[in-house]
Design a protein around this nucleic acid. Structure first.
Lengths: 353, 353
DNA sequence: TTGTATGCGTTATCAA
DNA sequence: TTGATAACGCATACAA
């Protein structure tokens, strides 16, 4: 073709297209934005041909500057190391891509003080909206003001004082399923292990749901003997001996004939529990029953297979993006809440003898 | 304070600052770009005060439009589900953040045909450079032209016909370490299992390095008896029976007294091998030796612990970002190559009897 | 050293 | 229906 030497070639602008088609810039702009309404067919055809010939693509940056919308979505993640966050991120990014939006990523690296700074940084790029999977606590916590009037959707963790759409696992239902299953299988002395609550809504909700299950375990048949339960908050800094002792204590406190089981609040806890069980020489499904939240790929590998509550991470991410896109489309109304059901993956660790 | 009703408040512009300080817009602009060189102290102070009072932050979008640089880095990942990609992404994103750059993420979802489209989409946002962790193969493959003259750095996978800085694990050294360790521990009949090569450079290099190790296993003491090795390409679509038969065949073909071991090309393969070993009732370190590339968090949990070659993912991501930033800083010269050493994590699966 | 004017690529307002 | 022209927020020649 008759194209300049190559590397020097800059992207064609709307002016180039206008010149090529022998029309004004405004007309070319109209071709994209108001085509049917106010453009004659023959002119439209000319413009179309010029666009094709020059392989013209509008500059989103310039559009953002002029028209205010960037087709950019800011995604803030508390910790990208967390497989849950990544799984959600994947679903959300896919949905955004399909809708023609691009995702700008900001990882907090678990530094809660940087939440506000992250949002500000993203906002400076004129992102159209936010997807937030952060703590919503601490000095740098985001508030309504931080959002610069842009819509946001919260994933997994609610924010105090930030009214926004919320998407999450149905923690209460999932916990009820997990506990009911354990009880039905004959595990009656339950220990729920969670990371420190620290105001994280999902942890708080799961813990509350666990406590509620003890009062009313669910399922058709009332448990006999009555279910007994404990809660342990296990911090990352705490040594393994804390966990080992907790497991030993659990069995000691259990009444004669009572079988003990652990419910793990997420895959981080699951990993530590699996390591502890290995250390003390127990076997899941025998000395200790088990159900964990999150379904890591390695759950089937720990003998005799770890039972889990799988989160619909892809759907959660997708729904989050969808919610945001609807708001961007102009949807008004009060904050909405999407609680998606988990799926109980029954493996050997929770089966009765 | 005396601020307008809140939500209506738009971000202050350079014009607001200029008015507040009683200077021209150009002066404010100079305050940011050429402060020391051409600005009198008293004026600088006035501007500084105005900036502080209005909490003014320059708009990167407008800067990009005007000055050409966006302080944006485009990150294209073949598959965000891959823990390796995420780990690298984390290191790269952190380094970019620290340098004042933001990351735009594009996930290919393993659709190799979209590579070019991804780069184009990112380029339309005027990203200053690219970090690419993609296949570099297929219809939509990127070439020099796709990059629009912007610098790029390749991570883990080389591209045919794309001269760019390259950062990766030292595959050859890592494989040599793994094989030498196995041989020293008395495993002499080796099977290397990899995902289908498909032109992926890292897979090709590891396979080649494995073959090279058979000829010259490394280590001080020549192995007795001589090492024997095989290679298996295992596709995701292939059923488990393929793997099971391969393992059974391995032991059959091994000479009397020869101990068999598997080297897994990455954590995906490791997962399948661990499942297979569980299925056939073997135990690592007894019926089968094992070393795998990548060090997933669950490696210690598979009895008696899976030996692995841990990749310095964080460092790889960091180095990738660093390379790119150097190029953005104006560094010229031919493509550079950074091969970072892996770390052999010795656990029970590879120990001699 | 500082201010004025222009351009970056687009959309929107106003005439024609 | 189409074409000038003025923003959008900033950087930079150029003039003072």
């Amino acid at each position: 073709m008759s194209q300049p030497p190559a590397a020097a070639r800059a992207r064609p602008t709307i002016a180039d297209v206008a010149a090529e088609a022998g029309v004004s810039k405004a007309t070319v702009s109209r071709y994209f934005n108001h085509r049917e309404r106010l453009l004659s067919p023959d002119i439209a055809a000319r413009v179309e041909a010029a666009i094709a010939k020059l392989a013209y693509v509008p500059s989103p940056m310039a559009q953002a500057l002029s028209h205010g919308r960037s087709r950019l979505i800011g995604l803030v993640v508390a910790d990208i190391t967390n497989p849950y966050s990544v799984a959600v991120l994947r679903g959300a990014e896919k949905a955004c891509q399909e809708a023609g939006y691009l995702v700008m990523l900001f990882n907090l690296g678990n530094d809660r003080e940087r939440e506000r700074a992250a949002i500000d940084a993203l906002a400076s790029y004129q992102v159209d909206g936010f997807i937030l999977n952060t703590l919503g606590q601490g000095e740098g916590q985001a508030d309504v003001n931080t959002l610069h009037g842009k819509p946001a959707v919260l994933v997994d963790r609610r924010h105090t004082g930030l009214a926004a759409d919320f998407v999450s696992l149905d923690n209460e239902g999932a916990m009820r399923d997990a506990c009911a299953h354990l009880v039905q299988q004959g595990w009656h002395h339950l220990l729920y292990i969670t990371q420190p609550l620290l105001g994280v809504s999902s942890r708080i909700e799961r813990t509350a749901a666990f406590r509620a299950c003890l009062a009313e375990p669910g399922g058709d048949v009332p448990p006999v003997p009555p279910v007994c339960g404990e809660v342990l908050e296990l911090a990352a800094e705490q040594g393994d001996e804390v966990l080992d002792q907790a497991l030993a204590g659990l069995r000691q406190r259990a009444g004669p004939g009572e079988r003990c089981a652990v419910v793990a609040g997420n895959s981080v806890v699951t990993l530590r529990v699996a390591a502890a069980v290995s250390r003390v020489g127990w076997t899941f499904g025998r000395e200790l029953g088990f159900v964990g939240f999150d379904d890591p790929e390695w759950a089937p590998l720990i003998r005799p297979g770890l039972s889990t509550v799988a989160q619909p991470t892809d759907a959660i991410g997708h729904r989050a993006a969808q919610c945001l896109l609807e708001r961007l489309g102009g949807l008004q109304g009060p904050p909405r809440e999407s609680l998606l059901p988990g799926q109980l993956m029954v493996r050997g660790s929770s089966l009765g003898v």
